[in-house]
């Protein structure tokens, strides 16, 4: 992908919708294409958050590793999704593993490059922080919804009459 193609891709990505053209040019200078084979590690828990990614296709699992080897997948991201926010906040460490579940193409944006440009232009930093905040809030809300365990069997030792929604009755 050429530089102007990169800039064009960023310009049309929903995450950067409405971003000023001069900032698009700045960000393009920090961007590059990457690919991951199915099963390949994108990053590992505890590693330095050197990039964030815009997924172009494929699928990535976010996973808490387990010493026994079978980790817990807490989220999956697909084409169009943003992967990684830890580059924004010190100490810039990944809190979990990211692993490609399918052949995956992404745009990687270099964290050191981005942070330098954000420091040099706080308006860019504020804009990017606000965009990431929206992503983080949305994922936090999704996580909160999952915390309700809404599909759990609502009762194990009560009569059917005491059971309301989701119990296997008329809805």
């Amino acid at each position: 992908m050429e530089i102007h193609d990169l800039e064009n891709y960023l310009a049309h990505h929903p995450f950067f919708a409405g971003l000023a053209p001069e900032y698009l040019a700045l960000l393009t200078g920090c961007a590059g294409n990457v690919t991951f084979a199915a099963g390949e590690t994108v990053f590992s828990q505890g590693g330095t958050a050197e990039h964030f990614y815009l997924l172009r296709d494929g699928r990535v699992a976010l996973e808490f590793p387990h010493p026994a080897g079978n980790g817990v997948v807490i989220d999956t991201l697909d084409a169009g999704d943003v992967l990684g926010a830890s580059w924004l906040v010190a100490p810039y460490r990944w809190p979990y593993d990211a692993r490609a579940l399918a052949p995956t193409r992404a745009l990687a944006l270099d964290a050191v490059c981005l942070r330098g440009k954000c420091d040099a232009d706080p308006a860019l930093g504020f804009d990017l922080s606000r965009r990431f905040a929206a992503v983080i809030v949305e994922r936090l809300h999704a996580a909160e919804l999952r915390l309700t365990d809404m599909y759990a069997n609502p009762a194990s030792d009560v009569s059917d009459a005491a059971v309301a929604a989701g119990a296997g009755g008329a809805a």
Binding site: N70, V73, D75, T76, D78, R99, R146
Partner: peptide, 14 residues
């Protein structure tokens, strides 16, 4: 699904 092991290839999320 809300949660899965590492052998699941589908979506995880709400």
């Amino acid at each position: 699904v809300d949660a899965a092991g590492s052998d699941w290839r589908g979506n995880v999320g709400v």
